[in-house]
């Protein structure tokens, strides 16, 4: 922590930089808010589309800033690789652990210790498994929004079987 304070003193010209935990708390409040708004929730089905949409708009904007000084991507796979490495590690402090694709527009991104789930359940804990989709909807939207601004229209879903690992399925829509 001390290191960070010194760092930000080193370049006073730069505007403020938010600490990581703020995003986590803010995200928790987003989830809270969305749950409080979704009234007619059917059994086991929660209305998380607002969360997904917020993620989409954040992803759409942030990717534009991140790739501003980036060289042009070669193809779809190149973009997905960028998402898995630089993009993911900047946002969530680690790279995607495993990327699989069928080369026909389906990509599976696996993160073995996803940051937003990391503090929820330790390995093999089933306690909060049912609630985990709440914590993933925003990031699904984030992925979809980022890809959308790179020119890839897709649907993104997430699945978890054991916390804190999760898989994001990206299905590219062919036009």
């Amino acid at each position: 922590m001390k290191q960070q304070i010194i760092d930000s003193k080193a370049n006073p010209g730069a505007s403020g930089e938010a600490d990581d935990c703020l995003f986590e708390y803010l995200h928790a409040e987003l989830v809270n808010y969305v749950l409080s708004r979704s009234s007619n929730a059917a059994e086991g089905e929660e209305e998380l589309s607002r969360l997904e949409w917020m993620g989409f708009s954040v992803g759409y904007r942030i990717i534009e800033r991140l790739t501003r000084e980036w060289s042009r991507f070669k193809d779809e796979l190149d973009m997905i690789k960028f998402i898995c490495t630089d993009f993911w590690s900047s946002l969530y402090h680690k790279q995607i652990d495993n990327l699989r694709t069928n080369h026909h527009g389906v990509y599976v991104l696996q993160d073995n210790a996803f940051r937003l789930l990391d503090k929820v359940g330790t390995s093999n804990s089933k306690q909060y498994l049912k609630e985990s989709p709440r914590l993933l909807a925003f990031t699904c939207g984030l992925l979809r929004g980022s890809l959308a601004n790179l020119g890839i229209i897709s649907t993104v879903t997430a699945e978890t079987t054991t916390l804190p690992s999760c898989k994001f399925h990206v299905q590219v829509q062919k036009i």
């Binding site: 403020g16 930089e17 917020m54 708009s57 954040v58 942030i62 980036w70 900047s90 946002l91």
Partner: peptide, 20 residues
Amino acid sequence: TKLDAKKVSSELFTLTYGAL
């Protein structure tokens, strides 16, 4: 060209707040 992790996570916070 390398992404500055601290700057990015700060922007993530700012933009998320905006979306909210």
